[in-house]
């Protein structure tokens, strides 16, 4: 049924009819059950009328935020900056939040992060260069358009902020090296969240985790993870660098300063491509 209000009204009238039937037959148990259902439906109807919105959340509720640790009062953008510097690569909000929770204190949620990103571009456009850095999207290597799913830092060179076909993998491996180094340097003090994050990342890299004969996986050894990630990186790096460098050259030539940070809305390019195909 399309309109939720209609659906509820139909439910209510169905239930009223069924309650009448049960009451007439003297079936008090059933009538009681149905009355409870009727109360629910009526309550949902009231809510809908009050808010004009269904009581249904559109999607699963936000992830539970980490408990607030006092004493860390850095603004959220500083948290993001810190996490990105640890990874050294463009990253998705979810990974940024995971890195933050694993190594730093303070509150940072994925929803906070997405509102932050909108502010950054607005702030830059109102007074460019007023801040020492901006959080900006990565750029697609072909169209030089923004890749909004990935966050970068404006002070990074274009080569680091551009995403080619191989870049997500090299960035993932580089980021894993960053996480492994951070776990390694904190030694015994590494938090369970940090070890878990490293395990989760390393589990997908060939030979990064030792498996015993029975298939049991041990806790990740940071040094081994770094070596395994580096080994795979060696396979991809040259080709990836070439693509990124070529795209960066193109960007410097054809994009304005702000486009080099926030990407270009290249409708013209798209149209050209569409014709060419």
């Amino acid at each position: 049924m399309t309109d939720p209000l209609d659906a509820l009204e139909k439910s209510i009238s169905t239930l009223r009819r069924a309650i009448r039937d049960a009451a007439t037959a003297g079936d008090t148990e059933r009538a009681g059950e149905l009355r409870a259902q009727l109360r629910r439906a009526e309550k949902a109807w009231d809510t809908l009328i009050d808010t004009g919105e269904p009581a249904t959340p559109p999607l699963w509720p936000e992830p539970q935020a980490a408990p607030v640790v006092h004493g860390s009062r850095l603004p959220a953008r500083e948290h993001v900056h810190r996490a990105l510097m640890l990874l050294g690569t463009p990253a998705a909000p979810k990974l940024i939040v995971s890195v933050h929770e694993a190594f730093f204190s303070g509150e940072l949620s994925a929803s906070k992060l997405s509102s932050l990103r909108r502010d950054e571009e607005r702030s830059y456009r109102s007074s460019p260069g007023a801040r020492p850095y901006y959080l900006c999207p990565a750029l697609a290597h072909d169209l030089l358009s923004p890749v909004r799913a990935l966050v970068t830092i404006s002070t990074w060179p274009l080569e680091q902020r551009i995403i080619g076909p191989l870049s997500q993998r090299t960035d993932f491996l580089t980021g894993t090296v960053g996480v492994a180094q951070a776990v390694g340097s904190s030694g015994e003090a590494a938090t369970p969240a940090a070890v878990r994050l490293l395990w989760r990342l390393a589990a997908t890299i060939p030979d990064a985790i030792v498996r015993s004969a029975s298939g049991l996986e041990s806790a990740p050894d940071p040094q081994r993870v770094i070596e395994a990630a580096q080994a795979e990186l060696d396979v991809h790096t040259d080709a990836d660098r070439a693509t990124r460098a070529e795209a960066a050259r193109r960007a410097r030539k054809s994009l304005s300063d702000d486009q080099q940070l926030f990407g270009s809305q290249l409708h013209n390019v798209m149209r050209l491509q569409a014709q060419r195909a």
Binding site: A140, P146, L166, H267, A274
Partner: peptide, 21 residues
């Protein structure tokens, strides 16, 4: 194989998500 990792996100084309494009 290990080198086979290249990927293309085709959810949109430079922010344009029209089906034809």
């Amino acid at each position: 194989t290990v080198p086979e990792v290249g990927n293309r996100d085709l959810n949109d084309v430079g922010g344009d998500s029209r089906q034809e494009i």
